[in-house]
Amino acid sequence: MGKPLQLTCNSGANPAATHTWYKDNQTLPRGSKDIYLFASITLADKGNYHCESKNKYGQINSTSVHIDVQYAPKLLSVSMSPSAEIEEGSSVTLNCSSDANPAAKYTWYKKNEDSPKASGQIFTITDFRAEHSGNYSCEAQNKLGRSNSTSIHLTVVAGSMKLVAAGSVTAVSVGIMILIAFLVIRRKRSSKPTAEAERETRQ
């Protein structure tokens, strides 16, 4: 991408032929010359090209040539699933995408760590723990260059099941305390008539 390119149409006609150029079967508005010149190839120039040669005796179409515009990775983006807070012990999946030709290869990094965490477009962390929290980014690379994404921050929160369990333990503890208090009060009340009866018998 960014380099010049020239297409040439040869027909060997007599009288000399005029030429019409086509991209993806659509006429190109550059006259009837036998040379089609790209001053600087861009992504928009990708497609299939052919020429048509014509004189008063007839016309003929050339075979088609495909222009494949290649470029380094760009427009990197990182997404995560689930997109909400990550519960401790659950799994989280990161996905890195880019616009590249040829297709890019992906490498995952965690901030402040030198070694890559994973390779491939998708990175899954199972059994997410506190030590997994941090900033993650991906690098996309092909033979024409490389590009890095912005980082995405992952942080762990207490699992809902643990919160439910903690609430259950608290409820059970409170229930036991209430039961003990009830039994103590009941014992005191039941002991009063017995004490009074003993006093009356002594009198």
Rank of each mutant, 00 (worst) to 15 (best):
P73R: 11
L5E: 14
A39D: 07
T27D: 06
P4F: 10
R202F: 14
F38D: 04
N10K: 02
T201I: 12
L179R: 00
S11A: 10
N101Y: 11
E131M: 13
S90C: 09
K3C: 09
S190F: 15
S191R: 14
N142H: 03
A130K: 15
S97T: 07
S64K: 12
T201A: 14
L163E: 15
K3P: 01
I35V: 11
I180F: 06
V169H: 12
R146G: 01
I152E: 05
G31H: 07
A39K: 08
I67S: 03
G120I: 10
A165R: 13
Y136F: 07
A195N: 13
H66W: 09
H66Y: 10
L154W: 00
G145Q: 14
T93H: 13
L7Q: 04
T93F: 14
R202S: 14
S168E: 10
L183R: 05
Y106Q: 02
T93W: 12
G159T: 13
V69Q: 06
L37M: 03
E88R: 15
T107F: 14
T170W: 15
E200W: 13
K162F: 10
A181E: 04
A197H: 06
S40K: 08
I125W: 03
A17C: 02
R30T: 13
S97E: 06
S11D: 00
V184C: 10
A158E: 14
N148M: 06
A165V: 11
T27K: 03
V172I: 15
N55E: 11
A72K: 01
Q121L: 03
A16K: 09
I86R: 00
T63M: 06
G167T: 11
V78S: 03
R189A: 15
S151Y: 06
T93C: 10
F38R: 00
M80R: 05
A195E: 15
K105A: 08
A103N: 08
C51Q: 01
N10V: 01
